Computed example of a mutant assay.
Amino acid sequence: MQAKDLNLILASTSPRRRELLGRFGLPFEVLAVEVEERPRSGEAAEDYVRRVASDKSGQGRAMAPEETAVLAADTEVVLDGHIFGKPQGPEHAREMLGRLSGRTHEVLSAVSLRWGDRHWEALSVSRVRFRDIFPQEIDAYWASGEPADKAGAYAIQGRGELFVAELRGSFSGVMGLPLLETARLLQHLGLETERLLAGAPP
């Protein structure tokens, strides 16, 4: 497949994922999908994030035209094996950020690409260390509105970066779509890295 012939769908309405995928200069459409995002009993965090990303791309594949490639992703914050998800309200956000305060957590970001009956996957694992966070900072951060729909109740690309003392891994992965892993998956569609760096023609 050549870039000029590429029909690509991003199975996500996340503005962060749209922004990140847009950096490649590829034409793509956005498709809203809804899958259950709840860990199964005994399911490891890596297995969970891979499954959710796969479910999203699978649903997108079922809804999209046959010749269309479908890309999806899922990102989760994990501490001590516990998947944090998105906060359900201010108290939940306070609990999350309080537990993350002064500690190192993992951010797992799985990417799933389907084209026809083919399926490719990748996983990015990043480690983020937070400085100590004061309760009044958590309250002020919640009041900003930023953490309400974010995994782990923070956005590293926004005000949440003020909590980050150290990052080992992928900044874009923590945002929600790891560009390194995504670029490698797109190579299966004939899109080499130099083409992505230059910006593929529409």
Rank of each mutant, 00 (worst) to 15 (best):
residue 104 T to V: 03
residue 152 G to T: 07
residue 85 G to C: 09
residue 66 E to G: 00
residue 175 M to A: 08
residue 35 V to K: 00
residue 97 L to K: 08
residue 28 F to K: 02
residue 68 T to N: 00
residue 61 R to I: 01
residue 66 E to M: 06
residue 181 E to N: 06
residue 197 L to S: 02
residue 201 P to Y: 03
residue 121 E to H: 10
residue 61 R to M: 12
residue 161 E to S: 15
residue 173 G to E: 01
residue 20 L to W: 10
residue 172 S to P: 01
residue 91 E to R: 13
residue 25 G to K: 04
residue 119 H to N: 10
residue 174 V to K: 01
residue 20 L to M: 07
residue 166 E to N: 09
residue 72 A to I: 00
residue 190 G to M: 10
residue 124 S to L: 07
residue 50 R to P: 08
residue 74 D to Y: 02
residue 163 F to E: 03
residue 47 D to H: 08
residue 77 V to W: 07
residue 26 L to S: 09
residue 177 L to T: 07
residue 93 A to G: 10
residue 52 V to Q: 12
residue 128 V to W: 14
residue 146 E to T: 11
residue 191 L to S: 13
residue 95 E to M: 13
residue 63 M to H: 06
residue 13 T to S: 15
residue 73 A to N: 08
residue 169 G to Q: 06
residue 163 F to G: 06
residue 168 R to F: 02
residue 106 E to F: 05
residue 53 A to Q: 14
residue 58 G to K: 14
residue 187 Q to Y: 02
residue 62 A to T: 08
residue 107 V to C: 03
residue 116 G to W: 12
residue 72 A to W: 00
residue 177 L to I: 11
residue 102 G to A: 03
residue 114 R to Q: 15
residue 61 R to F: 03
residue 66 E to Q: 15
residue 150 K to C: 13
residue 131 R to V: 04
residue 108 L to W: 02
residue 107 V to K: 03
residue 70 V to A: 01
residue 32 A to W: 00
residue 195 R to C: 07
residue 178 P to M: 04
residue 145 G to S: 11
residue 9 I to W: 09
residue 119 H to Q: 13
residue 198 A to E: 14
residue 98 G to E: 07
residue 57 S to W: 03
residue 3 A to G: 05
residue 41 S to M: 02
residue 199 G to C: 07
residue 16 R to S: 12
residue 146 E to R: 10
residue 100 L to F: 14
residue 178 P to I: 11
residue 168 R to Y: 01
residue 3 A to Y: 01
residue 46 E to M: 04
residue 91 E to G: 09
residue 9 I to V: 15
residue 42 G to R: 08
residue 195 R to I: 15
residue 2 Q to Y: 01
residue 50 R to D: 11
residue 155 A to K: 10
residue 48 Y to R: 03
residue 14 S to A: 12
residue 135 P to N: 09
residue 123 L to E: 13
residue 120 W to N: 09
residue 56 K to M: 10
residue 85 G to V: 09
